[in-house]
Simulated scan of single mutants.
Amino acid sequence: MMNENKKPIPVTIVTGFLGAGKTTFLNKLLKKNQKKKFLIIENEAGNINIDGGLIDKKENVLIELTNGCICCSLNSELGSLLNSLILSNTWYDNIIIEATGMADPSEIIQLFMGNRAQQYFRLDAVIGLVDAGLFSSQFEKFTEIRRQIAQSDIILINKTDCVEEQVLTDLTNQIHAINPFAELHKTQYAETGEIKMIDSFSYKPGKIEKKISDFSSFKPAVSANNSHGINTFGFSIEGKLNVEKFSFWLEDFIYTNAENLLRIKGVLNVPDMKHKIILQSVSGHFQVLNGSEWNKTEPRINQLVFIGTDLNREEIEKSLFEFIN
Rank of each mutant, 00 (worst) to 15 (best):
F235K: 05
I230M: 11
S227H: 07
G206L: 02
G229E: 05
F218I: 03
N231I: 13
V243P: 06
H228A: 03
P205Q: 05
A221K: 13
D214G: 06
S213M: 14
G239I: 13
K210S: 10
L241A: 01
F235C: 06
P205K: 04
K207C: 00
S236M: 08
G239L: 11
N225E: 12
D214L: 12
I230V: 15
D214E: 12
N225I: 12
N242D: 15
I230E: 13
E238K: 14
F233Y: 10
L241V: 00
K207N: 12
F218N: 07
L241Y: 01
K245Y: 10
E238Y: 08
G206T: 01
E238P: 03
V222W: 04
P220A: 04
K210F: 09
S223Y: 09
V222K: 13
N231R: 14
S217N: 15
F218A: 02
E238Q: 13
F235V: 06
E209V: 04
G206F: 01
S217H: 15
P205D: 02
G239R: 10
N242V: 08
F233R: 04
I230T: 15
S227P: 01
K210Y: 09
S236F: 04
I230L: 14
H228N: 09
K240I: 03
G206E: 02
F215W: 04
F215M: 01
I230R: 11
S216G: 08
G234N: 00
V222M: 11
F233L: 08
K245E: 11
P205R: 03
F215S: 01
E209D: 07
K210N: 05
P220H: 06
A224G: 15
I208V: 15
T232V: 09
K219C: 00
H228V: 00
E238D: 11
F235A: 09
K210W: 07
I208F: 05
K245M: 09
K210G: 09
G229V: 03
F215K: 00
V243F: 13
P220G: 01
I230F: 12
G234P: 00
F215R: 02
N225W: 10
S227L: 08
I212Y: 02
K211G: 10
K219A: 03
S216Y: 08
E238W: 06
S236L: 04
T232S: 15
P220K: 11
P205C: 05
N226Q: 05
N231F: 15
E209M: 07
G234S: 02
S223D: 11
I208K: 02
K210M: 11
N225M: 14
L241D: 02
F235I: 09
K240M: 12
F233N: 06
H228Y: 06
S216A: 08
I237E: 14
E238H: 04
N226L: 08
S223F: 07
K219S: 12
G234V: 00
K207R: 06
N226D: 11
S213I: 11
K211S: 09
S217F: 10
N226A: 00
N225K: 09
K211V: 01
I208N: 05
I212Q: 01
S236A: 15
K207D: 01
S223I: 15
G239M: 13
H228S: 01
T232Y: 09
S223G: 13
P220Q: 06
